[in-house]
């Protein structure tokens, strides 16, 4: 197990360099970063040239990348368009996004798995049909439509929530945005759990558990759920990474100053440092989340052993 973890961690190194290089090149293609600094007006050519020299933008791209990586390892992620260090932006943005992700994951686990178990056990029942239809609606409607609709109805029309989240973004203000962020994954978790439960319900070991005279509750929680949740846990684990980076739309709609918001600003202002810095951290989060899922998999299913 230990050797497996070390191997996986070592595998992350090339992935990390590959991913950052790719992002670096892509951001370079985006356009002239100096133009962004001057806002909407045309830059003075002399100032532009001077700024280029100052930021090292006159050098070839590979040299820029090496300089950037060199700085990265000393903890210097560069400065954002407003002169703030990117690390400071991260310190502000990540706690907010982590809170949002926690809310979203909790919704996925509590609502998604509960609905999945109910529908899986009652397949063909009206409850099952209704939930299935609802998940289909959620899956087919784009998330920004859901988000804007919820904001319009709950926030503006009925005034149940504040339409925009305050900069501190405490947990209670993140409930509705978290639900919106979780909606698509929640529908997936419901369907995944449902299929898994319905399939395992007829498994021989469940029949054995019934034949042992165990109460129905115990059969479901200890025997049926334990096996059925393995694929679901895998999905939710991988989703942690996806939710953290994929909150751009939700964070924009509810004006949450998290990772997605900063990334969006970085892209709009053509600020290489912000975009590459944030994406690099997200890549790391994603890799670690995946490693955790793989390790969890071995804990949940003893037939899987890593050597």
């Amino acid at each position: 197990m230990g050797r497996y973890v070390i191997r996986r961690l070592l595998q992350m190194i090339p992935v990390f360099f590959g991913a950052t290089l790719l992002i670096f090149l892509m951001v370079n293609v985006m356009g002239d970063p100096i133009a962004g600094l001057c806002g909407d007006r045309q830059c003075d050519p002399a100032t532009a040239a001077q700024l280029k020299k100052e930021f090292g933008l006159d050098k070839p791209v590979w040299q820029q990348y090496l300089t950037y990586m060199g700085n990265l390892f000393t903890g210097d992620f560069g400065t954002a368009f407003n002169g703030q260090p990117v690390t400071e932006l991260m310190a502000d943005a990540f706690p907010v996004t982590i809170r949002l992700t926690i809310v979203a994951i909790l919704f996925e686990i509590v609502i998604g798995i509960t609905l999945g178990v109910i529908t899986g056990l009652k397949r063909g029942h009206p409850v099952d049909t209704t939930v299935l239809l609802l998940t289909l609606v959620v899956l087919s409607v784009p998330i920004f439509v859901i988000g804007l609709l919820v904001q319009l109805l709950l926030g503006v029309k009925w005034g149940w929530i504040e339409p925009a989240v305050s900069p501190e973004a405490p947990f209670d203000e993140l409930i509705v945005p978290g639900l919106v962020l979780a909606s698509v994954s929640l529908a997936y978790v419901t369907r995944l759990t449902r299929t898994s439960i319905a399939e395992n319900k007829r498994a021989d070991y469940v029949r054995t558990a019934v034949a042992k005279g165990l109460p129905r509750r115990r059969v479901i929680t200890r025997h049926l759920l334990r096996n059925s949740l393995i694929p679901v846990v895998t999905f939710i684990g991988a989703d942690v990474g996806a939710l953290m980076g994929g909150a751009i739309v939700t964070e924009r709609i509810f004006n949450i100053h998290g990772v997605g918001y900063q990334l969006y600003q970085g892209i709009v202002r053509q600020n290489t440092q912000t975009v590459v810095g944030f994406v690099t951290v997200l890549v790391l989060v994603f890799l670690l989340a995946n490693l955790l899922v793989d390790l969890l998999y071995a804990v949940l299913d003893p037939r899987i052993r890593y050597a």
Binding site: G213, P215, H223, R226, I230, D301, R303
Partner: peptide, 24 residues
Amino acid sequence: RKIRGRKIAMIFQDALSSLNPVLS
């Protein structure tokens, strides 16, 4: 349920699939 397992027990054909794979 109280009779099952306590008074009448059953042995199944395929022990590999009849035992729960994730429990010792």
